[in-house]
Amino acid sequence: MDFISLTGLQFYGFHGALSEETHLGQRFIVHLKLYLDLQDAGQTDSLSATVDYAQVYKCVRNVVEGASVRLIERLAEQIARNVFEEFPLIQQIDVEVEKPGAPIPGVFGNVAAHIHRHRKELP
C-alpha cells in the first residue's frame, strides 16, 4: 500500500512514570507512516484525494502537548486513534514515539515505542 511519512516531529510534553517527568517535561520525537491509496492524488493533483500533512502535524502536536500519560506506548496509541478519527482516508498507521531523555541510569542511544494499527481495529 502507498504511504506518506512524516519523520522527526518534535514536541515538548509532560509524559512519564516519574513525577519529575510530568513536572519538568521533556522532548518527544514522533515518526509516522500513513498508509492510504495515493493513486487518485497522483493522477488528479488534488489535495482532497490525500491527507494534508500540515494538519496531521497539528493533530499529533495536540496529543503530545496535551494531557499527560505515563507511557510512550499510550502516547503512540492516542496519536494513532486521533489521526484515524481526523483523517478517514488513512487505512493503516505506523507510529514511533521516541523519548531521548528517558530516565535510564546509564549510557543509551534512544528509547522508542513502535506500533502499527489498522483502521478496522477501531471499535
Score class of each variant (00 low, 15 high):
L36K: 14
I104V: 08
Q78V: 00
D40G: 14
S68G: 01
N82G: 12
Y57P: 00
V51K: 10
Q78K: 10
N82E: 15
V64F: 08
G25H: 07
D94S: 02
V83E: 12
D40W: 12
V64E: 04
F14R: 14
Y53V: 02
A17E: 11
E73M: 00
L24D: 09
V63G: 12
K99A: 01
V69L: 03
A49C: 13
E21Y: 03
A102P: 00
D94C: 08
L38H: 05
A102R: 12
L75M: 07
E21D: 08
D94P: 08
L36F: 00
F28T: 11
K99G: 01
D40Q: 15
E65L: 01
G13Y: 07
P100Q: 09
A49L: 04
Y35G: 04
E86P: 01
Y57I: 03
Q78W: 08
G42M: 09
Q92E: 15
F87I: 03
L24S: 10
V95T: 11
L18G: 09
D94E: 13
V69C: 07
H23W: 06
D45R: 08
G66K: 09
E20H: 05
G66Y: 12
V51I: 04
L75D: 10
P103T: 07
A76D: 14
L75N: 05
L36D: 12
V83F: 13
I72G: 01
D52H: 09
I72C: 02
H23N: 14
L75Y: 06
V64I: 07
L75K: 11
I93L: 12
A102G: 06
F84L: 01
V60N: 13
L38K: 08
L75R: 11
S48K: 07
V95K: 14
I72H: 07
I79E: 15
F14Q: 13
L71S: 04
Y57K: 13
P100V: 03
G13N: 02
D45T: 02
V95F: 12
A80D: 10
K99M: 02
L18W: 13
Y57Q: 13
E86I: 10
H31L: 01
A41S: 05
L47E: 15
D40F: 02
Y57H: 15
Y57M: 06
E98P: 02
D45E: 05
V63D: 14
A102W: 06
E65P: 04
A54E: 15
F87Y: 15
V51H: 09
A80W: 05
L47R: 10
V64Y: 05
T44V: 04
V51W: 14
H23I: 04
T22H: 13
Q55G: 07
G16R: 10
Y57D: 13
L75V: 06
A49T: 05
H23Y: 03
F28Q: 07
Q55H: 07
H31R: 04
S68M: 01
L71T: 09
L24W: 12
H23P: 00
F28E: 02
V83A: 05
L32A: 01
L36C: 04
V30H: 09
A17M: 01
Q78G: 03
